[in-house]
Computed example of a mutant assay.
Amino acid sequence: MQSITTRTGLHLPKLGLGTWRMLGEDCTRTLEQALDLGYRHLDTATAYDNEAAVGKALAQTSIPREQIHVTTKVWWDKLEPQAMRQSLDASRKALGDDCLDLFLIHWPGNESAGWSLERSIDTLVALREEGKARQIGVANFNVAQLTRAVVELGAPLSVVQVEYHVLLNQQPVLDFARQHGLALTAYTPLARGQGADTETVQRIAEKHGVLPSQVALAWVLEQEGVAAIPKSNSAVNQQANLDALKLKLDDEDRRAIAALPKDVRIVNPNFAPKWD
């Protein structure tokens, strides 16, 4: 599996498995299946209500734990220092890990309602220094928030996780991540099928003899410093996503994808920050 190495020493497999809306035994079976196929990067969160199911898969697989990267996240309503600590402890217990691989703030809070970015980032850093999380990062932060965390506060963040696919421009965040040595993890990298549905992507897929979804995913995965965590329950689709790592797009393909609209945002809750 190809991987990204960050300035903080994180080795992040390029392709992971997203677990949103996977629950219980079905989640556990799906993850064990993915691990058997070769996945070594699993993404979960307290908000997904499946950390215990992920932990069960980790306990039951024959793959050594140190070979599997697991990311989890704290929800935006648990960003006060004590609440963050309690959330991390609950995640560690559910996942069966004394020290988590990567712990993210899932969404920034609302500063007009009293949330302090500085206090949350300071707590995140302290949890890393205490050995409760090997690496730390954030999700859904805009460039201004990343600048405060990384440049002004000097936080050793490893990852920024954001929605990213062929129909959404994330160049400002990507430029920041590259400049400061962070990996960018793309969630919803297939735009829930919308990317594969475009005539452009379908034409490129026909040219290469592959699935449109593989073209859309390959475009994300080929980019420097970018990982992706598509969700997939079936072994067929999980394998197809793995095979996207082998697909080589050419300059003509990239120009065609660059010409697609880049303003389709799938995930945009009412508590989201002001996007770049």
Score class of each variant (00 low, 15 high):
1 M>A: 11
2 Q>A: 15
5 T>K: 15
6 T>R: 13
11 H>I: 15
13 P>G: 03
15 L>R: 02
19 T>V: 04
22 M>G: 10
26 D>Q: 15
33 Q>L: 11
38 G>M: 09
45 A>Q: 01
50 N>K: 01
52 A>N: 12
53 A>E: 12
54 V>T: 04
58 L>Y: 05
64 P>Q: 06
68 I>S: 00
78 K>D: 10
86 Q>F: 13
87 S>C: 13
88 L>S: 13
92 R>K: 14
99 C>V: 09
115 W>Y: 14
118 E>I: 08
119 R>I: 12
131 G>H: 02
142 N>G: 09
142 N>M: 05
144 A>S: 14
150 V>N: 03
151 V>I: 15
158 S>M: 00
163 E>I: 09
165 H>P: 10
166 V>I: 14
166 V>W: 07
167 L>S: 09
168 L>E: 06
178 R>N: 04
187 Y>S: 01
189 P>A: 08
193 G>H: 05
196 A>N: 00
198 T>E: 12
200 T>W: 08
200 T>R: 14
201 V>D: 06
209 G>S: 14
218 A>L: 03
220 V>Y: 01
230 P>R: 00
232 S>A: 15
233 N>W: 02
236 V>Y: 11
240 A>C: 09
250 D>P: 10
251 D>V: 08
256 A>M: 15
263 D>F: 11
264 V>I: 11
265 R>D: 10
275 W>Y: 15
